[in-house]
Computed example of a mutant assay.
Amino acid sequence: MQDCVRAGGYGSAWFDHRDDAKQLTCIEARGPTYRGVLRGGAKSLFRFHPNHDGEVARLAVRLAPSNALSLATVERGRGDKLHVATAGGMGPGNIDSLCRALTDLAGIKGAPVIATDADPPGDRHAAQLRSLIGKHLITVEPILPPGGLNDWNDVLKSGRRAR
């Protein structure tokens, strides 16, 4: 899977964060007893592009890498969408990387940014993103998980597909 996820210790998954030059900047670990960024790194964005190096016309911004991967799976790997995650919050490294990605998309007519979970943290994250996106004159297309579910992990577990 593009070498962006690895099995870590104690049942955790390790998600890499890479800069625009695809250089590793940090490792985000998520497991049953730990969630955080390993020491010595600088958060940027977890990135997953189903089409690897193909053209990106859409950007899906999630809070957690697992949600980014779940949305990619539910959508059956739509090849023109870059899935990114911010490791929960929006720090300087996330914002810088995200602004560069948005600048790249600004030239594509109608390239929406998708960033919504159906819960209060998702609403806060979407509000932060809208404030960033406004500077880039890009429209926002919020996609909520179907059927009253809270996030895309729940959608994947339920076997539903995106509309």
Rank of each mutant, 00 (worst) to 15 (best):
G91H: 02
T139D: 13
V140L: 12
A42H: 11
H136D: 03
A42F: 11
G89R: 07
A60T: 06
V74R: 03
G147M: 08
D154N: 11
G88Q: 03
V84C: 11
V37H: 03
D96F: 12
V74S: 02
R161V: 08
D53R: 04
Q23L: 13
Y34S: 12
D16Y: 08
V74C: 15
L137A: 15
M1E: 12
L132Q: 02
L82H: 02
V84G: 00
G9W: 02
R78F: 06
L132W: 10
E141I: 04
G107L: 03
A162I: 05
R78G: 05
D104L: 15
K157M: 13
L98Q: 00
D3C: 14
P65D: 10
E141A: 09
P32S: 09
R130T: 09
G79T: 14
P32I: 10
G93D: 00
F15T: 00
V140A: 02
G88W: 07
T25Y: 04
L71V: 03
D53N: 10
M1P: 14
G93N: 01
R160K: 13
Q2I: 06
G40D: 04
A162T: 09
A127V: 02
T103M: 11
D151E: 12
P32N: 13
R18G: 01
W14M: 05
D154S: 12
S97H: 13
Q128A: 13
L38F: 11
K43G: 00
I108V: 14
K109P: 13
D80P: 15
R39M: 06
P50L: 13
A87D: 01
T103C: 11
R130F: 08
G148K: 10
G93A: 01
N94A: 03
A111L: 08
K43I: 01
I114Q: 07
H125D: 00
P32T: 07
R161P: 05
G41E: 02
P65Q: 05
D19L: 01
R76D: 09
N67S: 14
V5A: 12
L105M: 04
P146F: 06
T25F: 02
D19F: 03
P145S: 09
D53F: 09
A42N: 07
D3E: 11
P32Q: 08
G122K: 03
H136E: 03
Q23A: 10
D119L: 14
G54M: 04
R76C: 08
R161C: 10
C26Q: 02
D19A: 06
R58K: 13
L102G: 01
A21V: 09
H125N: 06
V74N: 06
G8K: 01
N67P: 09
D80E: 14
V113G: 11
A29W: 01
R161N: 04
L24A: 01
L38S: 08
